[in-house]
């Protein structure tokens, strides 16, 4: 095993104690005294004080005029540790979404930046609204002027959605399996399709490879759907988000998958 493939003892030292992590997260935001920390965290004086000494001994914090300051290097270490914590939170918060699903087409980069999705919402169908996931995406698509999408299967609504966006002078970029290519394009008005392709507003990339991911990027939102491990698409859940970070995350993933399946 590679030498740096092991958790180093500093990580262990920090991760071992919730109290130390809490103290560091307070000092990360602003310097504080022991009394101030006791007040902010509700942790008792002796615990705060003994952990402060341990942090000081290990060179993570330093006292300047009654107040403890986090050292700049520890600030970076702590940041990366909290990033890992946020990752674990995202995995747990959307457990139903990831668990027993196929993640093969998520790029390693997109997995490493998965905390960018922390503002997302998990949309699930309900017995009284079994098309909730599809309808959520459909509404976003119809209102969008620019769409990038990976459609791994054909839904009968897609041709009309594409037509409607193109009629409104919108722009569409699609990655789809070769097997559904003709079924989609023959249902779009021929004149509109030719014109849009000619002026670059409609770009369709049919690919030979299996697509095991569903991704849409609209003007202000993104949505992500996965296949289950048994190879069926999970129509009951999607992750949607309308913040900038998720949008960027989705753009990068779209680019990575496009490059990967088209090589």
């Amino acid at each position: 095993m590679n030498i740096h493939n092991e958790i180093n003892s500093d990580i262990k030292f920090l991760a071992k104690s919730e109290i130390r992590l809490k103290i560091l997260s307070e000092l990360y935001d602003r310097p504080n005294s022991i009394h101030g920390l006791v007040k902010r965290t509700n942790i008792n004086y002796s615990s705060v004080s003994s952990n402060i000494s341990k942090l000081e001994q290990n060179n993570h914090i330093r006292k300047i005029k009654h107040k403890y300051h986090i050292n700049p290097m520890t600030k970076i270490y702590f940041k990366t540790l909290i990033d890992f914590k946020n990752t674990v939170d995202i995995i747990n918060d959307y457990n139903e979404f990831w668990d027993k699903h196929n993640l093969d087409q998520l790029s390693i980069d997109s997995i490493k930046n998965i905390t960018d999705l922390k503002e997302s919402t998990l949309v699930e169908t309900t017995p009284i609204d079994i098309y909730k996931t599809h309808n959520t995406i459909k509404n976003e698509l119809l209102q969008s002027m620019s769409i990038k999408a990976i459609f791994p299967y054909l839904h009968p609504d897609y041709p009309q959605i594409i037509e409607s966006v193109l009629e409104n002078n919108g722009k569409i970029e699609l990655v789809i399996p070769k097997s559904i290519y003709s079924a989609i394009i023959t249902q779009i008005d021929m004149k509109l399709r030719r014109e849009s392709s000619k002026n670059g507003r409609l770009k369709i990339y049919p690919v030979n490879n299996d697509l095991k991911i569903y991704l849409t990027i609209c003007d202000g939102s993104m949505s992500l759907g996965l296949f289950k491990n048994d190879d069926s698409f999970d129509q009951n859940r999607i992750l949607v988000s309308n913040d900038e970070k998720s949008h960027k995350w989705a753009e990068n993933l779209f680019k990575a998958i496009k490059e990967d399946v088209m090589k």
């Binding site: 990366t80 990752t87 668990d99």
Partner: peptide, 30 residues
């Protein structure tokens, strides 16, 4: 690894590599 395990371990490796990378040029950053 399960799907969750794969997500977590990929990010644990990122954490390890983050620390390795910072420590490698510690003097420069410090």
């Amino acid at each position: 690894l399960t799907s969750n395990g794969f997500l977590l371990t990929t990010n644990m490796i990122k954490l390890i590599e983050n620390w390795f990378s910072i420590n490698k040029n510690k003097k420069f950053w410090n």
